[in-house]
């Protein structure tokens, strides 16, 4: 469903070129639940942006939904992103002047769905994340955990192939973080959507079926890493 091969990304900083990703190979299949860990500055968010079609790699190939995305125009990429990707951010990124319902409906309106239909779908999905009684609340009327639940509903509204969550629990206390993780796990199981979670928290990582690590610009699959180091 999603396949990276030899993805490299380098940034120019004045005269020096810094290669952040040095040949990443990655496959994510439907229904996967995967974590990516790594030290700060190791390129986790950079990889996530490439996966989410927000940034282009310097080289390498990326196939999503059976298509090579490297030649797509901005228009096609945006439509593809709308169709296949759901983002969950550390800082929620809900639009402050919209209600929970309107926030969740937003990705649907970008694919041309009518307001009423998008509203119905948004309500349905908000009920799934136990936010059905907060439809008309604005983000500043919600707690951190509630905001993240709305954000997760927004990511799922368009039935994407994969949900990309960049430190989704980073701004939450441990109880709330656990709730959010349980929600992601449940949605992954019930809806069959693939979920990729970037995290610094080993506890969060261990909740995922598949774990991986970015180090020195390379992605190490969790199982291999563990086999190498002999860790459990």
């Amino acid at each position: 469903m999603l396949e990276l091969a030899d993805i490299r990304k380098s940034y120019r900083l004045g005269p020096v070129e810094v290669e952040v990703l040095k040949g990443i190979d990655l496959r994510v299949d439907a229904g996967d639940l995967m974590s990516i860990m790594g030290p700060s500055g190791s390129g986790k968010s950079t990889l996530m942006n490439i996966l989410g079609l927000l940034g282009r790699p310097t080289s390498g190939s990326y196939r999503l939904g059976g298509r090579d995305v490297s030649t797509m125009s901005d228009r096609e990429l945006s439509a593809f992103r709308n169709e296949h990707i759901g983002f969950v951010f550390q800082s929620f990124n809900l639009l402050g002047h919209l209600t929970a319902l309107e926030n969740v409906a937003l990705p649907l309106t970008y694919r041309g769905m009518g307001r009423r239909q998008a509203g119905r779908r948004a309500e349905e999905i908000l009920e799934k994340v136990a936010m059905g009684d907060r439809l008309d609340h604005r983000p500043d009327q919600l707690s951190g955990g509630q905001k993240q639940r709305v954000a997760i509903a927004r990511a799922l509204a368009g039935t994407p192939s994969v949900v990309l969550a960049d430190e989704p629990t980073g701004a939450l206390d441990s109880n709330t973080a656990d709730e959010v993780m349980q929600l992601l796990i449940r949605l992954n199981r019930d809806e069959g959507v693939a979920v990729v979670i970037i995290t610094h928290d080993p506890v969060v990582s261990l909740l995922c079926r598949r774990q991986s690590l970015i180090r020195d610009g390379m992605l190490l699959d969790g199982s291999a890493e563990m086999a190498e180091s002999g860790a459990p």
Partner: peptide
């Protein structure tokens, strides 16, 4: 930030 969020949700440059 709003513009970034909208782009992430599938808004094209044209949108």
């Amino acid at each position: 930030r709003e513009i970034g969020v909208r782009r992430a949700l599938g808004a094209s440059r044209g949108d």
